[in-house]
């Protein structure tokens, strides 16, 4: 299952909630959630730990828009909107953690 998260993990619990409820799968960070994919973020350790259970992707145009494209955590893959489409197509189902 693809989990789409769009909120900053520093102001909203959805990233944490997804990690608590789900065991495995793929996570795509979009909109304000892209911060969770960056080095130096207070949640960095949590994201690194999650990489053991999930494949984590981040939407590059959203990272670039926020000036954070130069600090993606190693192991997190970057995708464009085409990559976003591919992820939805490749997974059997998807859930947006709104």
């Amino acid at each position: 299952m693809l989990h789409i998260i769009n909120k900053s993990p520093l102001s909203n619990s959805s990233f944490n909630d997804c990690l608590r409820v789900m065991d495995k799968g793929e996570i795509l960070l979009i909109e304000d959630a892209v911060i969770a994919a960056t080095k130096g973020c207070a949640l960095e350790a949590k994201t690194r730990e999650a990489l053991g259970r999930f494949k984590i992707h981040v939407l590059m145009p959203d990272l670039e828009a926020r000036g954070m494209a130069d600090r993606v955590i190693d192991g997190v893959s970057t995708v464009d909107y085409g990559g976003f489409v591919d992820l939805v197509a490749a997974n059997k189902n998807c859930q947006s953690w709104l």
Binding site: N6, E31, D32, D80, Y81, G82, F84, V85
Partner: peptide, 17 residues
């Protein structure tokens, strides 16, 4: 909110593929 933009850009990319 960015939701409508994200949805639109997703649609455009899906159609392009």
């Amino acid at each position: 909110h960015e939701a409508s933009d994200s949805a639109y850009l997703f649609c455009k990319a899906a159609i392009a593929k």
